[in-house]
Write a protein that binds this DNA or RNA. Structure first.
Lengths: 339, 339
DNA sequence: TTGAAAGCGCTAACAA
DNA sequence: TTGTTAGCGCTTTCAA
């Protein structure tokens, strides 16, 4: 720990530049009233003295503090990280700081953290959920702006940003159909999740647009695990329907499917093409073969939530649900065209 | 966005409690000089008015601000999350806030962020690396305390906290030997990483302590991928040495090994036991069979880094490298005793 | 045990 | 275009 740096204040800067405190303040804050020469002198002085403005003093007489709160429901969740990253990258580091909190799925903890954030006088809050299931609005509790990322608010007056499951499923199905697949099965996830429903529904709709029906058992729900993927694949293999493709609602399911197909001597992608969801990179790109998947573009979700909050802080609060288009990440599990 | 809450200030509280500003301040800050009755009255007033102290005003005349900076090298890295979580959970939410930054492995960006954090008058900084390879000390640049998590500082004057790879390897080898394994092979990771070297070395040492030598090729280095695990396993199968266990330097390698053993009809754990490293839960616990692994206890690393920083802030800066003991997470891949 | 008053470092009227 | 002055909300001497 180096010695305590004696803080250089604006007063010192003003003094060395030979101007008043007020003028120095104006010069450094880009106010137009100061002459170019004065500004140069002040900036020079600030630079040589290594002046760093004290944000606390600044915040004390400004309407805004340049700090926003990130209220995450579950920091350990692997989906929140890209969102954080998107937020962090969007807000200018110099102008805005992020205070991070983790409610650990505990509503009581969440209340506490909101109080803390408000005590820190954050300009706004980005509420990051742990799935894309809707969550109660915080509008009543908050005297500041807020946007919701991943888990949308139940109130449409709030601005929510999440990935578009329907569109993701459509991308997957279109890709399979373009590859010549006509008999597509679907294995979706835990039916208590929106994502499981929407990805299945999106697939059914997209298939119909091509004049196709999804093959295989009507009840394609399971959970989000490899085990379910393996079980589902075996069921399909033992079922009466032929299939040349499987769309899975996440990468783990897809991994299970790919592994079982391999065990049974079905070649992927030659005999059966497989598409996953989530683009859990380290996971889906190292299987045999690597799995084509849908990336939710969660960084973009974070980016939009940050921009939305910035707008809200600027006095123009957005509202409604914005669905971010996912993208297809093609890999070997769907390579080549069938026939 | 609800209406702007007119902030309740200490002055209002003092007024309703019928005391002076100064007394109210003392009462709320636990100063002993105030009488119990007065304190009760002030607290009562504060509660009913919903008084929340303004941290900026507070920080303006205190030595500390109750804010610390988290300087992460790479937020997208999956190892930093548990560390963040450990830090977040350790610092009292009410008393300390965390400002999050992400340098994205860019030293220039890192400099900027340090400047920003110092501008925010953080009481200290926790530097979180993206691997356990040492990183340059920041002591020269920082007028405040700092601790290093995961990636230790190159300076022993700094306090660094990381997981103990040697101990992790020892746990794995001991566990295998206790299970009756005598011919243990090792597949480690990318030789440019400390972790790869230390885990291999730890395994060799631990084996010798049992009077055993590691079997298989001397050059056990590869990278951190499933592909390397598969390749390494095939090499072992085709080699001349018999082996009844494989210790892998991460879960991906272990997964590759398990999959190939399965392909070749070797039963895990009956014929060959497998241990991974990192406890990447969602990954290692869903393979066939689920993989025994070493958990680095990164939350604990975060916790200690936070406590160390708290000590530094309190004027007692710790120093040196603290290695956190990992723990074994037993799963099916080593179940039962051989023999 | 309480209160009056002086700042913390800065911004924002207002005056010059 | 520049400077003077009054706070922002709080803590902290120092007196009472």
């Amino acid at each position: 720990m180096a010695g305590k740096a004696k803080a250089v204040t604006l007063a010192t800067v003003a003094q060395t530049a030979g101007v008043s405190l007020a003028t120095a303040s104006k010069a450094l804050n880009g106010k137009t009233v100061v002459s170019a020469a004065t500004r140069r002198r002040v900036e020079e002085a600030a630079r040589t003295l290594g002046f760093v403005p004290n944000h606390f003093a600044k915040a004390l007489n400004s309407a805004t503090t340049g700090v926003i709160g990130l209220l995450t429901a579950d920091l350990a969740n692997r989906f929140v990280l890209p969102i954080l990253s998107g937020v962090e990258n969007t807000l200018g580091v110099e102008s805005t700081s992020i205070i991070l909190t983790d409610a650990r799925r505990d509503p009581i903890r969440e209340r506490h953290q909101i109080a803390t954030l408000l005590g820190r006088k954050v300009d706004g809050i980005i509420v990051v959920g742990h799935s894309d299931d809707a969550r109660p609005s915080l509008a009543e509790l908050l005297p500041v702006g807020a946007t919701y990322a991943f888990a949308p608010s139940t109130s449409t007056a709030d601005a929510s940003y999440l990935s578009d499951n329907y569109e993701g499923a459509r991308l997957a199905i279109d890709h399979l159909v373009e590859g010549g697949r006509r008999s597509i099965a679907v294995l979706t996830g835990d039916p208590t999740y929106n994502a499981a429903k929407e990805r299945l529904e999106g697939a059914v709709r997209a298939a119909r647009r091509h004049g196709l029906e999804i093959v295989g058992p009507a009840n394609a729900y399971g959970d989000w695990s490899e085990e379910w993927g393996r079980y589902g694949a075996e069921s399909l293999l033992q079922g009466r329907d032929e299939f040349d493709a499987v769309f899975c609602a996440n990468d783990q399911i897809a991994r299970g499917v790919v592994d079982v197909l391999r065990d049974y001597g079905r070649e992927v992608p030659h005999d059966v093409a497989v598409v996953g969801f989530d683009n859990w990179e380290l996971y889906s790109s190292h299987s045999r073969p690597p799995i084509t998947t849908i990336d939710m573009n969660l960084e973009e979700v974070g980016r939009l939530a940050a921009l939305g909050l910035a707008a809200a802080i600027a006095g123009e609060p957005p509202s409604g649900i914005t669905r971010v288009a996912p993208r297809l990440v093609p890999r070997a599990s769907t390579a080549g065209s069938k026939q």
